[in-house]
Design a protein around this nucleic acid. Structure first.
Lengths: 231, 231
DNA sequence: CCCGCATGTGACAGAACGGTGACGGTGCGC
DNA sequence: GCGCACCGTCACCGTTCTGTCACATGCGGG
């Protein structure tokens, strides 16, 4: 999975550090800027997937920055989340009007911020955002619906694709055939449990040329597991 | 399910007592620390499932504690909830408290605290969170269905796995063959009692390479026991 | 010290389980 | 309508697991 890049524009260093630290932990790649000038620079060469902008900035208000961002064809697709202090709350309307995709009032809980970031990105992703899972050299790009190993493309049927997607988002856990039917086929389909075996087989066969069939492991008596570690 | 352990790090005794009392009533196992020093100690030997940290602490700020927690591979998975006074939230803290998973502002209602605790724990467990039993270096991860000692994987058949799982969740107690048949095989199976012996044997054999077969002990005339203490 | 009973142990046959190739059916695009 | 891709099911097979037995071992009481 390519890490999503987030740019933080915030002049108060302690807060900036704090937020950056938290976001990095959550798996994002974070760059920081303390004013609009450097923010613009970062925007050009980092091409972040999302921008967090503080409302109050020394050289230009965050609102201004957002507006100009959204005016530029080059950057208008980048989602923006504004950070505002509670006192400034009445201005939130203005923030949204400026083109921000969402705003969060300080203080905010980490949960909340992460949730909003994800929500906003999800909304933006059809535009060009990427949704890539990677595991042991195996890449699954959900937006383009492609599975690749290096340059080669792995040909999968729809069911195998969903199965692999499910596994890649739930690695290291064992799932019984019933659970897989529930979660990959859908809760109210009735098919034989052994059908799962057959699709596991097909998935393995597709991964075999790359010696990645080992990732799909049988746990005798329980089901299957997707894992890098041999079992 | 073993009761979840919560560690409270808070210097003001009255508050600490109050919170601890409430949490114990809610069924948690609570340990307390009044500064970061003792918190660290508790972290090591208690391995709490969640930590509640006050923002203001005498020796080190709660923020520092949280950060160092999240930096350490050993403890980064333990969810942290920060407690902050309302006065502190405005100016200093913007948001992600150095990696805290959530935060609660004082004064808070017991309800809210409990709700957040549950939410955070729920979120922590399915993600990377695991269902891990550990005993004398022997690890049984039920979600991935793996039994390991250090890096090595212990190969167990289905029955041996269930047997070990049962023992690890019921250590230090003696079970007769009949009881084991009931609880590991299932209430309505009819098999010879001596069959238990054979599976005990197989389990021991699998643990032998790691000198852990000593954990499965025979109680002559009564049955078997899983225990670290010899005899 | 010896006996008797409880437990350890190796072997084995049947059952259960999962892997695999093949087949017929179905829906879709051409 | 035809061919193609995919799906679900089945039958068959090798492998692994399981329960049972027969025999070995060992502990404890007399």
């Amino acid at each position: 999975m390519t890490a999503k890049r987030i740019l933080i524009v915030e002049d108060e260093k302690p807060i900036r550090d704090l937020v950056a630290f938290g976001l990095r932990r959550a798996g994002y790649e974070v760059s920081e800027a303390e004013d609009c000038r450097s923010a613009r620079a970062s925007l050009v060469d980092q091409r972040p997937d999302l921008v967090l902008v503080d409302w109050m900035l020394p050289d230009m208000s965050g609102l201004e920055l957002t507006r100009s961002l959204k005016r530029d064809k080059e950057t208008e697709d980048i989602p923006v989340i504004m950070l505002t202090a509670r006192a400034e709350e009445q201005d939130k309307v203005g923030g949204l009007e400026g083109g921000a995709d969402d705003y969060v009032t300080k203080p905010f809980s980490p949960r909340e911020l992460l949730a909003r970031i994800q929500a906003v990105m999800r909304r933006a992703s059809p535009a060009g955002g990427e949704d890539v899972l990677e595991f042991e050299g195996l890449r699954l790009d959900d937006s383009s619906h492609r599975v690749t190993v290096g340059d080669a493309e792995v040909a999968l049927g729809p069911t195998e694709y969903r199965l692999l997607h499910f596994f890649m988002t739930h690695a290291e856990r064992v799932f019984g055939r019933g659970q897989l039917l529930d979660r990959v086929w859908g809760g109210n389909t009735y098919v034989e449990e052994r059908t799962v075996d057959v699709h596991i087989r097909r998935l393995r066969k597709a991964l075999e040329p790359y010696a990645l069939d080992r990732l799909v492991q049988t746990v005798r008596g329980s089901g299957y597991r997707f894992s890098a570690r041999e079992g």
